[in-house]
């Protein structure tokens, strides 16, 4: 009798539990969570709506019901301070060389998730990062140069290089620069001139062109590649100076097609933007199972998401392999 009663009580209790669960699910089945608003702090030079990684960011935000508020700032630290005041769950940040940035991020690491874009803030790599491997970009640039010179049976030894980059404050560009200089040393190439800003770039380069002081130009970021291409296209120096650079803008691609740019290294920017949002979502959702995939099991440090890098030349830019990367579809 008592057993019978217990069975019934158990049965009714189970029914009530199912009732509670089903009621909860019934009333929350459409509840897919609030739309998260995420600040994205980028360099002012990245303020280009056609930038592929911005499109990647926006696409991922749309897919994962997130709202991105883009902030383009020279002073990342103050932008970060303002974003932190809003007590946001996560922040996507394209860091610069300001050493206070990592300090501030560490202070808020318990309450705010950070996703770094394009480059790390410190060599230890405490924060998750989605970026093309900057050192590999430099190596790829050197590969392109070697390939072209090799085809012409020309040695790189003693070649005078003009190195141009505008976002020198960014760690990413610094990493590229250091690696490329390292590669040059290995090849016996000479750094004829290093230009870190757009101001007086034209004068300096024209001056170099005038006496044939450069064998090739290497631009380490999209703005510098674009500026160099414009200059070469406009100047048309007597001695042809081949230009190799990193970039993805329409102008850069146009100059590649025109032959002004000899080779282009092009990271999969869309992928960078998309994965940054995707991973930040995992971080802000605080799903520990998913978080494990973001952190290395041995080092307990964040995994670095490496992004595809394409080496594109005029000859292959319309190949189906590269076409959709070089010319993003509408």
């Amino acid at each position: 009798m008592i057993t019978n009663k217990r069975v019934w009580i158990g049965f009714v209790a189970a029914l009530l539990l199912v009732l509670a669960w089903a009621s909860y699910r019934f009333f929350h089945v459409r509840d897919i969570g609030d739309i998260q608003s995420i600040p994205v702090i980028l360099s002012k030079t990245s303020n280009d709506p056609y930038m592929l990684y911005r499109r990647g960011l926006e696409q991922a935000a749309k897919d994962y019901r997130m709202k991105l508020s883009f902030v383009y700032a020279d002073n990342k630290l103050s932008a970060l301070k303002r974003a932190l005041k809003k007590e946001t769950a996560g922040i996507i940040l394209e860091p610069d060389l300001d050493k206070k940035l990592p300090q501030m991020m560490e202070e808020h690491a318990m309450t705010t998730r950070f996703m770094l874009l394009d480059s790390d803030v410190e060599p230890e790599g405490i924060f998750p990062l989605t970026a093309a491997d900057n050192r590999r970009i430099s190596v790829s640039l050197m590969d392109l140069i070697q390939s072209d010179f090799g085809e012409q049976n020309l040695s790189l030894d003693g070649k005078r290089v003009g190195l141009v980059y505008f976002n020198g404050k960014e760690l990413a560009v610094q990493q590229r620069r250091d690696k490329f200089v390292n590669q040059m040393d290995k090849m016996g190439m000479l750094l004829a001139i290093e230009i870190r800003s757009q101001s007086r770039m034209e004068d300096k380069l024209r001056s170099m062109f005038s006496f044939g002081g450069l064998d090739l130009l290497v631009a380490l970021d999209n703005p510098s590649t674009e500026a160099c291409a414009h200059l070469l296209n406009a100047t048309q120096p007597e001695e042809i100076v081949p230009l190799y650079g990193e970039g993805y803008s329409e102008a850069v691609v146009y100059f590649l097609d025109k032959g002004v740019v000899n080779g282009l290294v092009l990271p999969n920017e869309f992928q960078i933007g998309y994965q940054a949002v995707e991973q930040l979502r995992q971080l802000t959702n605080a799903d520990t199972r998913r978080l494990q995939t973001l952190f290395n099991a041995d080092s307990h440090q964040p995994e670095k998401e490496t992004i595809d890098i394409f080496k594109v030349k005029k000859e292959n830019m319309f190949d189906s392999e590269f076409e959709k990367i070089v010319f993003p579809m509408p």
């Binding site: 029914l15 019934f26 459409r30």
Partner: peptide
């Protein structure tokens, strides 16, 4: 169908409880 699923579960459970 989730909504319907939970609705059916609710319906069945409530019916069973009412029957009990």
């Amino acid at each position: 169908l989730y909504e319907s699923t939970y609705y059916f579960i609710l319906l069945v459970v409530v019916s069973i409880l009412a029957a009990l």
